[in-house]
Design a binder for these strands. Structure first.
Lengths: 214, 214
DNA sequence: CAATGTAGTAATCGCATGATTACAAAGTCA
DNA sequence: TGACTTTGTAATCATGCGATTACTACATTG
């Protein structure tokens, strides 16, 4: 095919696969890991799957993060930072007319569906309380969210609890992929409408339907 | 030790390991599986661990249930049946003075902590929505709980939603083993008090503390 | 007692997966 | 240019785990 032998060799590898700085690569892998851990859970996910999703080799993932466990810790750390950042942005955003802060923050939570795997990964971490390493990290993360509601949003304890509860329900429904049954099952449709009274159109648009893997 | 050679042979096996009917054994394994799946999750749990907890060999677990996947399906089916049975019992129990039905059912939910692994296993299942087999089963189970609140407890949609949300929060806190930090971390202590306003003493008593595996 | 069914295990297999090693290619800088 | 660092992969290893096979012991029935 190629008239230049030197090029022929290069053409053999489908993609030049640019070299990135290790920091950039790390961020890329964290993005992929969030999606994979979210879909498969900590134990169900493989470093190879993460590597594929990030476009690098499996050993490199392990080397950049030391171990799968460390990768997961970094992933939930990152997810939590994003969550709190979104909350703080919503809290600070006084611009949107007289909408109450709580409402804005709830919306921000739902909007995080767009960050693929974020809710599912955090929810998975929250179920690993008995894990010697991940358990404590998950508890710290959960407590950090609680503190945000109490100290920054300045909610009373029972209000904060109600917020957390709604959040857990939303995460559960996302993890369940209940959206798959929306429209076909009347019960689920009703449940869905009850849980996403205002954001429904947005949620249906953002969450991919069907049997695709994520 | 033994003066009777025939007995010596028998003494070699530490326990006679009574033969049970396969149905009884199945129930025993389901109990063990609930605890193991709850502590480790579906992927994290091993059939060997379940077998050990049930006091049988690993191949027997696989044979009685066909596969690990089937065992998990049977486990969540059983857990859901227990959950609904507890709810119905609480609903029917008019005896306890004028306590409202919702309150009784909430208490029943918390009391199910005693069934080791029940909340955690269900919560794990709810996060497996993208699994081709377990996903649909989990959605059916979740919908069944919803129907209970709507059709049997006769709640309005938004009341039912609030119940489910509280349930998800409680399940999360159990899975997180937040109880481990109760007392030592003031934030967590507060969070705990907000979430279990009345049942606190009971919860603290029922959930084992410390680093034991389950 | 033979025959058949049932409860259960030991041994082992095949495969997936996290990790390690050894190496290559591409920058970087004196 | 040549030494050194950084980014990255191919090959492979060790291990854990679900499943299968082949077998034993006990129970039931005719």
């Amino acid at each position: 095919m190629s008239t230049q032998p030197a090029d022929a060799v290069i053409e053999d590898r489908p993609d030049p696969a640019k070299r990135l700085s290790s920091d950039e690569r790390r961020r890329q892998i964290l993005r992929a890991a969030l999606a994979v851990f979210g879909a498969r859970g900590y134990e169900g996910a493989t470093t190879d799957e993460v590597a594929r999703a990030a476009g690098v080799s499996q050993p490199y993932v392990v080397r950049l993060f030391g171990s799968k466990e460390n990768l997961f810790l970094a992933t939930i750390e990152d997810a939590l930072a994003r969550l709190l950042a979104a909350f703080r942005a919503a809290l600070a955003d006084e611009g949107t007319e007289g909408e109450p802060a709580g409402k804005r923050i709830g919306q921000a939570y739902v909007d995080l569906i767009e960050v693929r795997g974020l809710h599912q990964t955090l929810a998975n971490a929250y179920l690993m309380g008995s894990h010697p390493v991940i358990g404590p990290a998950a508890r710290r993360g959960f407590a950090a969210v609680w503190r945000f509601f109490r100290d920054e949003l300045k909610l009373e304890a029972d209000e904060a609890r109600a917020f957390m509860a709604e959040g857990m329900l939303i995460s559960t429904m996302i993890g369940l992929r209940l959206v798959d049954d929306y429209g076909s099952d009347p019960q689920i449709t009703e449940l869905f409408r009850a849980c996403f009274p205002t954001e429904l159109p947005h949620v249906l648009e953002v969450v991919p339907r069907g049997d695709e893997r994520w």
